[in-house]
């Protein structure tokens, strides 16, 4: 990356739960970490998220899910991303995720899972480290 490059992150809330605070806290925190954060709001379909991620050419997608539908939504998003040549985008998931599902998510290609209460700085560091590895 050149000096002018900024890390671009899409924070998205798929599915039907309306609890936005977590996503907003993350978006705000990553902004303060120097990232360019694109926030698309509530109730996004996997197709909308994938389309936004590709058009915005983000380095990272962060999904905030508290509805319990994380497995199905993540699977659909991966499919939508593949259909748009966006499968290389780093994917992380945050929210209420049961311990048992974390491995399943990682097998689906999720790079990191952050459960409620994770400090934003930890998420920012994780993103920086993983993008360096990929570069």
């Amino acid at each position: 990356m050149t000096d002018n490059a900024k890390i671009r992150v899409l924070i998205a809330k798929p599915g039907l739960d309306g609890h936005e605070r977590g996503a907003r806290v993350i978006a705000y925190g990553l902004r303060d970490a120097g990232f360019e954060v694109i926030y698309t709001g509530l109730r996004q379909t996997p197709a909308q998220i994938a389309s936004a991620a590709v058009q915005e050419d983000v380095d990272v997608i962060g999904l905030s899910i508290l509805s319990g539908a994380h497995l199905a939504l993540t699977k659909q998003l991966k499919e939508q991303l593949a259909a748009r040549k966006g499968e290389d985008i780093l994917l992380i998931v945050g929210g209420i995720i049961p311990e048992n599902d974390i491995d399943t998510l990682k097998q689906m290609g999720v790079a990191g899972v952050f459960t409620a209460g994770t400090p934003v700085s930890q998420v920012a560091d994780f993103i920086r480290q993983n993008l360096q590895k990929a570069a």
């Binding site: 902004r31 120097g34 990232f35 360019e36 954060v37 694109i38 926030y39 379909t45 389309s51 936004a52």
Partner: peptide, 19 residues
Amino acid sequence: PFSGGALLGDRLRMAEVAV
């Protein structure tokens, strides 16, 4: 101007045409 970061929220209002 402090962190160099940004919160880009205009897309939020453009859900209708996003896909």
